[in-house]
Design a protein around this nucleic acid. Structure first.
Length: 396
RNA sequence: GGGUAGGUGGCCGAGUGGUUAAAGGCGGCAGACUGUAAAUCUGCUCUCAUUGAGUACGCUGGUUCGAAUCCAGCCCUGCCCA
């Protein structure tokens, strides 16, 4: 199975006819820890491994929900922090939750605001109670707590709510990482208490909750964090605190030191990852779910993913190139030349942002679909290796 | 013809005796981006060479130790009046 041979849109997996359970592992790879799974959620089913496009503010930037659907995206992200500040979770609740409000009818995962603890570090103060933010919109002080994060996510009505965590920076002293993960665990307990006291729904329609493993680059801490969260019993587990500036090898190690302590029958989610080769690497290490701003942000900055690595469409070299951006491009984009795409970017035309956003997401989604097919077909290592070999060949 | 304002690096535009190869913007050429304060940010952008040198603020001449900056003449442009 090669990336270029993958059918698009991907066929429904014949493996996915099973009794309704929240998550089922349907196939495993013999040469790696990769597995194919199915995750049943209130708004639909998600085939794993999966890439989840990021739609922080209730929109996958530049794209119409129908286009995101056309891409075959099965689940997208939203962000608690941003939607809380603007337009406010009660407003969204009143307009049909995030699904009704945004027009996206498939599953949504909401991040808890924990990442903003890291990304807005200059504007916040962490206490036992929660995180005091200086609102980046108007500078006013606001307190986000585990309970409030859960309440906001319940109001948004996402299919999966992430627990409120502290994402420590890199590098991070071991003592701080230990303190931080202990806080994340205490917050997880408070999230759980809030959920059991307030979650109105039950059964298949209920919101799922994923814990977030922290512990920076320290193996013992990763293990401890994973064990503590698993003991609290959530619907799935994420590995956080990665892709915060650490070398790639540290990132892989952090995953490896967490995955073995996570249950086989629950989905595993590596937060914020990654480049295409990183995602294939992580799938081989047993991760099921990914999200990353990279395809959409890079698209808006003129970078297009191709089977031969990313290219900067703004570069002069593409000025008269009649070829499509990539031989694997979706028909929606394949009809446009690199020369035209370059022109759109140089002219500041919005269509350029849209076409590359569409293209890069297609590339990522197809990468994941190909991985699912390859795992089911029992040749995942070949798929990964042949993709990475070509993708990185000209990059160096 | 008279008056007046002005001519600065690819373009716009600041500078009005030395710290000016000349602010800033645009344009151009690259780079960065990983649970999105991001259609953003960074670097380079006269010529040649390694430090360094050369050429350059309409043109020509002058004043001065030193001129994009002061003076004279000329050329050109905008506006106003004939």
């Amino acid at each position: 199975m090669r990336f270029a041979d993958c059918a698009w849109p991907p066929p429904a997996s014949p493996l996915s006819r099973r009794p309704a359970v929240s998550f089922a592992v349907l196939a495993t790879d013999s040469s790696s820890a990769a597995r194919v799974g199915r995750l049943d959620l209130p708004h639909g089913t998600v085939d794993t491994p999966i890439f989840m496009p990021v739609g922080t503010q209730g929109t996958v930037k530049t794209l119409h929900p129908s286009e995101v659907e056309q891409l075959g995206a099965q689940i997208i992200l939203g962000n608690t922090y941003h939607l809380w500040l603007r337009p406010g979770h009660e407003l969204i609740r009143g307009l049909g939750g995030l699904h009704g409000f945004s027009g996206w009818q498939r599953p949504i995962l909401t991040d808890s605001g924990g990442f903003q603890v890291w990304s807005l570090a200059k504007l916040r103060k962490i206490t036992e109670e929660g995180v005091q933010f200086r609102n980046h919109l108007d500078g006013s002080k606001m307190l986000l707590t585990p309970e409030l994060s859960m309440e906001i996510q319940a109001a948004l009505g996402s299919d999966i709510a992430m627990l409120f965590d502290e994402c420590p920076p890199y590098p991070c002293e071991e003592a701080y990482a230990e303190k931080s993960l202990a806080l994340t665990t205490r917050w997880a307990r408070r999230c759980k208490d809030w959920i059991s006291a307030n979650e109105p729904r039950s059964g298949d329609g209920r919101q799922r909750h994923f814990g977030i493993v922290q512990g920076s680059i320290y193996p013992d801490l990763r293990e401890r964090s994973a064990r503590e969260l698993v003991a609290l019993d959530f619907d799935g587990y994420a590995i956080g605190g990665v892709s915060v500036g650490e070398p790639e090898e540290e990132m892989f190690r952090a995953i490896d030191h967490a995955v073995p302590f996570l249950p086989h029958d629950k989905p595993r989610y590596a937060m914020g990852l990654g480049t295409p080769p990183q995602i294939l690497e992580m799938i081989g290490r047993g991760v099921d779910m990914f999200d990353c701003v990279m395809p959409t942000r890079l698209a808006r900055h003129g970078m297009a993913m191709t089977l031969d690595g990313p290219i900067n469409i703004k570069n002069q070299i593409h000025a008269t190139d009649p070829r499509p951006v990539c031989e694997s491009a979706h028909a929606h984009v394949a009809g446009f030349s690199r020369a035209y795409l370059r022109h759109l970017f140089r002219a500041g035309e919005i269509l350029g942002l849209r076409l590359l956003s569409f293209h890069n997401l297609h590339f990522y989604l197809r990468l994941a679909a190909g991985a699912r097919e390859a795992i089911a077909a029992g040749n995942y290592s070949d798929y990964r290796d042949s993709f990475v070999r070509r993708y990185t060949r000209s990059a160096s």
